[in-house]
Simulated scan of single mutants.
Amino acid sequence: METSPSNLPDDVDALRAIIAAQADQLAEQARKLQSRDTLIDKLKAQLAVLKRARFGSSSEKMDRAIEQLELALEDIEAAEAEAMAVSGVLASSPTADPAKAKPSRQPLPDHLPRHDVTHQATCTCPVCGGSDFIRAGESVSEVLDYVPASFRVVRHIQPRFTCKGCDTQVKAEMPSLPIERGKPGPGLVAHVLIAKYCDHLPLYRQSEIYAREGVDLSRSTMADWIGKASTLLEPLLVKLRDHVFAGHRLHGDDTPVPVLEPGKGKTRTGRLWTYVRDGRPYGDAIPPAVCYFFSPDRRGLHPRQHLATFSGVLHADGYAGFRDLYEPHKPGGPPTILEAACWAHLWTPPTLQG
């Protein structure tokens, strides 16, 4: 219940009733905040437990649970901040919790560019009206801001010259573009690819975002760019795979991924195969790298095809498709691929259990 100071009654008992009602409201808000604080602490504790178990069994389920808890924490903390702002609990309030009113602030990153905005004081002294000032230093407050990404049109200008001796036309060659005879520059193509595959932003949503900036990029147009960019990046992918499989030690694993089946209204389970080359724990200075393969199923022929040119140590789990790789290629000869079994899948004999 809110009452304007100008509308306060003159009766003492009525004033006491107003004060008592406001005290009850404040107590109720305090109880709600305390309840939310308790829930936040509980969720944070659950989140910590799940993060510790992240690399245990069923890590995909753990990841999904962690994401849901993080979303819940975001909503609760945002609601708490809104409630504090509405109720007028400011950092300068004497009743505010010092730990929450003045959170520790880390310095802003040094590598970010600085944009100075100078706020000039009034030209006259507010006390005596004088206008003759001596500079006595300055106060600097840094605020982290964001400038949204923007489109631009790059004009490639090719001046033409005519040879005075033979009238030959001469001009500079145009740099190659990622899409032949297309409009997108390399930065735009890279941005669309990263938004789709790293930030999981579908093309139709990207189209809606760009439309707000007055740029019409249809989903089909960007899909065409992605298809052509895939062909353009194929040589780089080959080099990356050659680099990964040239190492002597390799880590391999697969994970299930849901794949849409157009026209059937459901998904099927595909497989994403991952192979990692990382010799840093062994003092290897060669840069680490990872490559991925997709397959519609988990048949053993897929790892055999992936590792057809690899020779060395493979660190993997006990999947039968991997075990077949350790067989000798020639009768009596050593295997081309040596097994480094994953201890997370170590089998303990029943006689040693308990």
Rank of each mutant, 00 (worst) to 15 (best):
E208N: 07
D199F: 11
D216G: 06
L217F: 11
G227E: 14
Y204S: 04
K196H: 02
I194V: 14
S218R: 09
A223E: 07
A229E: 06
R212G: 08
Y204F: 11
Y204K: 02
A195C: 11
W225L: 08
D199Q: 13
R219D: 05
A195N: 09
T221C: 09
I209L: 11
G227C: 09
L217K: 01
S207M: 05
P202W: 04
T221V: 09
H200V: 07
L217M: 12
H200W: 10
I194F: 11
Y210G: 00
R212Y: 09
Y197R: 12
E213D: 15
Y197T: 14
Y204P: 01
K196S: 01
Y204R: 04
A223F: 05
T221Q: 12
Y204N: 07
H200L: 12
S218K: 08
Y210V: 05
S220G: 10
D199I: 06
A223G: 12
S218M: 06
R205I: 03
A223N: 08
D199K: 11
R205A: 03
R212D: 13
I226D: 10
S218Y: 05
A195E: 11
A229P: 04
R219P: 00
G227N: 14
E213M: 15
D224P: 00
M222C: 01
A229G: 07
G214D: 06
A223R: 03
D216A: 15
H200A: 13
Q206M: 02
P202G: 05
I226W: 07
G227H: 12
I194N: 10
P202S: 06
L201M: 12
L217S: 01
A223K: 02
E208R: 13
V215Q: 14
I194T: 13
L203E: 02
